[in-house]
């Protein structure tokens, strides 16, 4: 696997720009991309495969809108977990249903004692809080404190766009 800081070469970058809005909805999308990017269709497929393999592309397919699917409650659950057990427990929490992101992040004491962040999505707050209870049970005595921060307003949501 390549180093995480690998940049993109010119042709990868063309492919990213051509597909960041989505894959063409035509029967032979890689041929259309090939025309748009000035390379052969085989090269398009090879480069997409390579970007998948090195993690530049996480996955390829449908990206559902949580809200439209009824997952309208999102809670950022945060946990103060014993550092000695964080690696093992983080892996287990990532596998629970409803957890869409799970990261270790720094504490900012005394304001912020939490070092594990698990984003929870549910159909309502009660469902999110039930998931948080499940996590608390799993963490057991390794967890010293926790909190669930619900979002009460989306102030901005524009996503990432590479500059052209």
């Amino acid at each position: 696997m390549n180093a995480p800081d690998d940049g993109l070469d010119e042709y990868d970058r063309r492919l990213v720009l051509a597909t960041q809005g989505g894959l063409p909805l035509v029967e032979r999308p890689y041929e259309l991309l090939a025309e748009q990017c000035g390379m052969a269709a085989e090269e398009v497929k090879r480069r997409l495969q390579a970007m998948l393999a090195r993690g530049v592309i996480r996955r390829m397919g449908a990206v559902p809108n949580h809200y439209a699917l009824g997952y309208t409650a999102n809670g950022m659950s945060v946990w103060d977990v014993d550092d000695a057990h964080l690696a093992e427990l983080g892996e287990r929490i990532g596998r629970l249903p409803g957890v869409t992101h799970c990261y270790e992040r720094p504490r900012h004491l005394p304001l912020w004692p939490y070092n594990l962040f698990a984003m929870l999505h549910g159909h309502d707050r009660a469902a999110v809080l039930a998931q948080a209870e499940e996590i608390r049970g799993l963490l057991g005595s390794a967890c010293r404190a926790h909190n669930v921060l619900f979002s009460t307003r989306i102030l901005k949501k524009s996503g990432l766009r590479l500059a052209t």
Partner: peptide, 19 residues
């Protein structure tokens, strides 16, 4: 896509892996 059930269809990029 038109109804907003999907936000997109295609590759999901991981920006850290692009530098």
């Amino acid at each position: 896509l038109a109804e907003g059930v999907l936000t997109r269809f295609g590759p999901m990029f991981q920006v850290e892996r692009m530098g």
